[in-house]
């Protein structure tokens, strides 16, 4: 059974229909990438999945349990199983980096103070951050902020990890570091990871399953190997639009 199942997901804002009936599944322990042009509905899809947007039609099932049928307590419990890395990091700027990572632990874990500190240090080490515990988010670089956001997202050992454009605003080298960290975390903790991205390097680097969304519809899905051999015009048009990727495709 898939960890997350989505059936005929529809979402509109006023008159504008953003998601026009998307169905897909996400497997446990896999890195799932959602790609598509800006304005295609990727972020709305991700936010609908995690319940930040009320959906108009369709079903979202987490390990067989439908999200919209859950009562408040079940939803709260499900939320503690979710970790999210936001596009702009969404770190609490009035808290130190350690306190950011400890925030969810303070709220829900019931751990002692030293246990929480140990867990925060473990999460920060997992994303290769050291000696930054007492710094504030504004005092570290964009790449480090992303890593803090990732450390915060895994603090409560989530079953599902969501990342909204984790590489936006990062140089290619740092972007690959973040990609590899996400993949490492997905495999080490055996979690279901869903990433929204524009970054084709990420697609080729870590995409176990790729879903291409266009105008609110799922147009294509497959693996990173299949993306190279597909005849689908839409996906080819999107993925191989740059000269670099065109030449790679040609050489293949």
């Amino acid at each position: 059974m898939a960890a997350i199942e989505v059936h005929n997901l529809k979402k509109s804002f006023d008159e504008q229909e953003v998601l026009k009936g998307i169905s897909t599944t996400f497997e446990k322990g896999k890195t799932n990438l959602i790609i598509g042009q800006s304005g295609s509905g990727k972020t709305v899809f991700l936010k609908s999945l995690i319940g930040l947007h009320q959906i108009d039609e369709g079903e979202i099932l987490y390990d067989g349990r439908e999200l919209s049928n859950m009562d408040t307590n079940a939803k709260k419990s499900l939320r503690t199983d979710m970790g999210m890395v936001f596009q702009g990091n969404a770190l609490f700027d009035s808290l130190s980096i350690e306190d950011n990572v400890k925030f969810a632990l303070d709220m829900f874990s019931g751990m002692s103070s030293s246990e929480k500190t140990d867990r925060a240090n473990f999460c920060l080490e997992k994303v290769h951050l050291k000696d930054v515990n007492n710094k504030f988010p504004a005092e570290v670089s964009g790449g480090m902020q992303k890593r803090v956001a990732l450390a915060r997202a895994i603090a409560l050992s989530p079953k599902y990890l969501f990342c909204d454009e984790p590489n936006s605003g990062l140089d290619p080298k740092t972007a690959i570091v973040i990609d590899n960290l996400i993949q490492e975390i997905t495999q080490d903790f055996d979690i279901t990871t869903i990433i929204n991205t524009h970054d084709m390097n990420s697609v080729m680097e870590i995409g176990d399953k790729i879903i291409y969304i266009k105008h609110g519809l799922k147009v294509w899905s497959g693996t990173k190997d299949e993306i190279l051999s597909t005849d689908n015009e839409d996906i080819n048009d999107f993925v191989f639009c740059s000269k670099l990727f065109k030449s790679i495709k040609k050489n293949l």
Partner: peptide
């Protein structure tokens, strides 16, 4: 606007 409120919601707060 910096999605910090969304981050709280996602944590189940």
């Amino acid at each position: 606007v910096s999605e910090q409120i969304d981050a709280l919601d996602i944590m189940g707060i």
